[in-house]
Amino acid sequence: TYTFKVDNKDQAKKAAKWAKKLGLSFQIEKHGDTFKITVQ
């Protein structure tokens, strides 16, 4: 499981695209202005 934080929606979208490309499941949680992405 890999967790990282991004500062904006664009970065969150890029991370989601990357995870989908690799066939991984992911969750994006919004914490105020940051997004926490968990990829597994």
Score class of each variant (00 low, 15 high):
N8Q: 04
F4T: 02
K5G: 06
A12Q: 02
N8M: 03
K9V: 13
D10R: 14
H31G: 03
W18P: 00
G32M: 05
L24D: 01
D10W: 15
T34D: 07
K21E: 09
K9T: 07
N8K: 05
K30W: 05
Q11I: 07
I37E: 00
A15R: 04
D7P: 09
E29D: 06
A12E: 01
L22R: 13
K9P: 09
T38I: 10
F4R: 01
Q40L: 12
A16Y: 12
W18L: 05
T1E: 11
G23N: 07
D33F: 06
K5N: 14
N8G: 11
K30R: 12
N8P: 02
K20D: 06
L22F: 07
L22Q: 10
W18A: 04
T38W: 05
G23K: 06
Q11N: 05
F35M: 04
T1D: 06
I37Y: 01
K17V: 09
F35R: 01
E29C: 14
T38S: 06
Y2M: 09
A15Y: 15
V39H: 01
H31V: 15
A15M: 12
A15H: 04
V6S: 02
F4P: 01
K17E: 12
F26R: 00
Q11T: 07
A12T: 03
V6N: 01
D10T: 14
T1N: 08
F26E: 00
L24T: 02
T3I: 12
G23M: 04
T34Y: 15
K30N: 06
A15L: 14
K20P: 01
N8T: 14
V39C: 03
K5D: 11
T38M: 05
T1M: 10
H31L: 13
T34K: 14
F26N: 01
K36N: 09
K14M: 09
F4S: 01
Q40C: 08
Q40N: 12
K5Y: 15
T34P: 01
K21W: 08
K20T: 10
L24I: 05
F35W: 14
K30H: 07
K14A: 13
Q11A: 14
K36Y: 15
A12M: 08
L24S: 02
A12F: 04
F26H: 03
E29I: 09
T34W: 14
D7R: 11
K17R: 13
K9Q: 09
D10Y: 15
Q27C: 11
F26T: 04
F4V: 03
K14Q: 09
T34R: 11
K17G: 06
A12R: 03
A12K: 03
I37D: 00
T3Q: 06
I28G: 01
K17P: 00
D10S: 14
V39L: 10
A19P: 01
L22E: 05
S25T: 12
K30V: 09
F26P: 02
Q40A: 12
F4E: 01
Q27V: 14
H31A: 12
I37M: 04
L24Q: 02
V6G: 02
L22M: 13
I28A: 04
K13L: 12
G23S: 04
K13S: 08
K36T: 15
K30G: 05
K30L: 07
T38E: 03
Q40R: 12
L24V: 04
K17A: 13
H31Q: 14
L24E: 01
W18T: 03
I28Q: 03
I28P: 00
K21N: 09
A12C: 08
K9Y: 15
I37N: 00
K14Y: 08
V6W: 03
N8R: 06
K17C: 10
D7G: 11
T1C: 13
F4K: 02
Q40D: 07
K20C: 07
Y2K: 05
A15T: 06
G32S: 04
K21F: 06
T1P: 09
K13C: 11
V39E: 00
I37H: 00
D7M: 11
D10I: 12
A16M: 11
Y2T: 04
K36I: 15
K13T: 08
F35N: 01
V39I: 15
I37Q: 00
I28Y: 04
K20W: 08
T34I: 14
A15C: 12
V39G: 00
A16F: 09
V39A: 02
N8W: 02
G23R: 04
K14S: 07
G23A: 03
L22Y: 10
T3W: 13
Q40V: 11
T34M: 13
W18R: 05
G32C: 04
I37G: 00
T3C: 14
A12D: 00
T38P: 00
F4Y: 05
T3L: 04
N8I: 03
L22H: 14
W18Y: 05
A15S: 04
L22A: 09
S25A: 11
Q27Y: 13
S25D: 09
F26C: 12
K36G: 03
K17Q: 13
K14D: 05
K21A: 09
K14F: 07
T38H: 06
I28E: 02
K9S: 08
D7W: 10
K17Y: 09
E29Y: 06
L24R: 02
G32T: 02
N8L: 03
D33V: 06
K9H: 09
G32N: 07
N8D: 07
K9E: 12
D33T: 10
L24H: 04
L22G: 03
K5F: 15
Q27T: 14
F26G: 01
K36L: 15
K36H: 14
K36W: 15
V39F: 07
T34S: 14
Q27E: 09
Q27P: 00
T1Y: 13
K17D: 10
Q27M: 12
